[in-house]
């Protein structure tokens, strides 16, 4: 347990540092989903950093592609590529594009960034797994604002129709999107009842930063017999950096040098 806590702390520090260096990027939704990715890559997923395209690996699709920094920091921590690469986030010629590129970054299973598309692709991956009688899982991470995209629900309908129980989607429910509170911009609530109505197995995690709760949810999701599972995680946008927490203003901007210093000091404490 201490290992996961230490790992996620390091990932958060890398997120703050790389977005500060790039002077642009999406810290809020990266920090809110850090525990989800840490649990998946360091405990739950069958992946091999030495062989990123291993055939029967579990797949992860970052449907909320703007949270690329948390994926990059996690993959680097896992050893898919050197941590030094994180300094090149969003720089000309860098493999670490503003949104993930599967052909540039070892360990990225799908290029994403345009919201709603990742979950649709993940459903296709899961269907392929079913066709070939494979046992690996497809994980996807959606934003709560992303649920406003119609394609999410086209994909949700299909995943249920094809009984894709090998598909496990997380919703990073931090309640904020660029323009403000999700319930003010365009409420996606009730999220659980919507997925239930679409035929999904629905699990709610009250604290999306609690590894035990997340683990229990994933273990239950893996046992789903004929339905895809959504794990709705209540999270805090900008988690662990006091001035970013619950502040939509930190959805998509980079901290300055002073702010990076303060954030790192808080993460060290």
């Amino acid at each position: 347990m201490a290992f996961l806590e230490e790992t996620v702390r390091g990932i958060r520090k890398d997120i703050v540092k790389m977005i500060g260096k790039a002077a642009s990027g999406h810290p809020g939704g990266s920090l809110s989903s850090a525990e989800i990715l840490t649990l998946l890559y360091f405990e739950q997923m069958n992946v091999d950093e030495k062989n990123p395209r291993k055939e029967d690996r579990d797949r992860f699709v970052l449907s909320k592609g703007h949270a690329a920094p948390v994926l990059y920091a996690t993959l680097a921590a896992k050893g898919f590529f050197p941590k030094a690469e994180l300094e090149n986030l969003r720089q000309l010629g860098s493999m670490l594009q503003g949104h993930p590129d599967m052909n540039k970054v070892p360990g990225v299973d799908m290029s994403t960034g345009s919201l709603g598309q990742g979950i649709s692709v993940a459903a296709g991956m899961a269907l392929a797994g079913k066709m070939d009688n494979k046992s690996h899982k497809i994980y996807a991470l959606l934003g709560d604002g992303e649920l406003q995209e119609g394609l999410v629900w086209e994909a949700a309908m299909a995943a249920s129709h094809y009984q894709l129980n090998n598909l496990i989607a997380f919703v990073d429910n931090n309640n904020l999107q660029i323009d403000g509170a999700i319930c003010e911009v365009m409420s996606p609530f009730p999220i659980d009842a919507k997925f239930e109505a679409f035929g999904w197995n629905v699990i709610t995690v009250e604290d999306g930063h609690d590894f035990d709760e997340l683990r229990t949810a994933v273990e239950a999701a893996k046992k789903s017999e004929d339905k895809p599972t959504v794990i709705i995680c209540k999270t805090v946008k900008g988690k662990c950096v006091s001035f970013m927490e619950n502040n939509a203003g930190w959805h998509g901007k980079g901290p300055n040098a002073e702010e990076v210093k303060q954030a790192l000091a808080e993460l060290e404490a």
Binding site: M110, I119, S120, V121, G124, L127, A128, L151, A155
Partner: peptide
């Protein structure tokens, strides 16, 4: 188109 993309990755 999205599901076609997913199938192609596999």
């Amino acid at each position: 188109m999205g599901m076609a993309a997913g199938l192609a990755t596999a």
